[in-house]
Design a protein around this nucleic acid. Sequence first.
DNA 1: CGCTGTCTTGAAGCGTTTCAACACAAGTGG
DNA 2: CCACTTGTGTTGAAACGCTTCAAGACAGCG
Lengths: 229, 229
Amino acid sequence: MTKISCAHHDDGNKACVSLVPIFNHLVEEKLDEIMQTVQSVTYKKGEVIYHAGDQSNTLYIVNHGRVKIYHLSESGKEQLVRILNPGDFTGELALFQQSIHENFAEALIDTKICLIQGEDLQDILLKYPTIALQIMKELTGRLEKSEQQTTRLATESVETRIALFLAECVEDDTRKIELPMSKKDLASYLGTTPETVSRRLADLEDQGYILQTGQRHIEIIDLDGLLLL
Amino acid sequence: MTKISCAHHDDGNKACVSLVPIFNHLVEEKLDEIMQTVQSVTYKKGEVIYHAGDQSNTLYIVNHGRVKIYHLSESGKEQLVRILNPGDFTGELALFQQSIHENFAEALIDTKICLIQGEDLQDILLKYPTIALQIMKELTGRLEKSEQQTTRLATESVETRIALFLAECVEDDTRKIELPMSKKDLASYLGTTPETVSRRLADLEDQGYILQTGQRHIEIIDLDGLLLL
DNA sequence: CGCTGTCTTGAAGCGTTTCAACACAAGTGG
DNA sequence: CCACTTGTGTTGAAACGCTTCAAGACAGCG
């Protein structure tokens, strides 16, 4: 089902590696060296990349496509942890310990992933500390985001969480946003249910803050108002 | 109120730096070098180390004492993000960007903190990549914990969150645990209210899972039972 | 086109919050 | 050392927000 190709047999990998933000400040020669250690795998939409409980010491880097990381609780409730877009990576804990995945990773669309083994990456990091700094930057950013999400779940109402999420989706200039996921997944990410998301969005629309235009399309009418909720 | 001392004027700093897990694999000579860049500050119980909104590019390492990091929402609700014990650090985002604190840091007891400026630390990391790996390990651990906490807030009931928290407080051997914080702070950490914590703990006691012995002391009667909630 | 999954809307039920009152512990000053 | 003060912890009752279940509308895809 999945296609595995070894780095030095696939020139496409070079594009892959150089695509990744954490590597793209490096000169050609170093990139070649790193490529030697990289494998790549492709997944079709809906395929599971790893399961909770799987053991692994591999770093996964999304080359192209889109991946969702989610958790299943004992009671069967799904919680979306994050979405990976091209250049994003996951599995970093595996760098330091033979660890067990807590979450599931699933390809949302056809996706190509680059793999680096923990030991290989550790060698690379010791040799090229600037890469380590890049990864640290990415990790601290993600940590900050995760703690922010924790705080919101703990202290804000669903309406406020939705409003803040929408506000963060706004690109400069345009007032129109496209939701990066289905409302079902959005509900899971925000720690609520699809029904409640639907109701609160309808409320926000009634109150004149937003306009729902299509399945995943929303127009922000009053951004400042949203942020005051 | 707070006492600032420069590293090379205070021999106590050597103990400080070598205490810190991320540094304690280094040889003497490197420690000396790092010490040159370290400042230390002491805070009395209750003093605020930094405020949300403060600008900073400093890494804070707790030498001795205890610090709580918490967030205040617009509505005035407090959310405890984490507790720092000796050897723990915070402010890592500041390494890469002149950033603004999202949270407050407050000394829970008399506390001594070591400070390293972002640029200094960046130099150190490039020179001694093993330190970068240590910090990455710490960051990934914290990220995993934060995502776990997010997931629990999103999918588990207060009772389950309390049960899981208690289970994690259990040291091997003993069944008696000491809560690492007040019940008020625990409520804030778990995203609920002191009243609810009080009620759910009473429930757990009625159901025979635990025994409340003192203000911060709980005896676990049925650990397996707790984990099945 | 008809299937399947996502989205919406309604009504009932439940867990949690809120407010208020009281018990209790720790810390302070007379 | 006790009384006083302050903050934490407990318990009750009412109110609220969210979830759940069920049924129907809608969109995407074979």
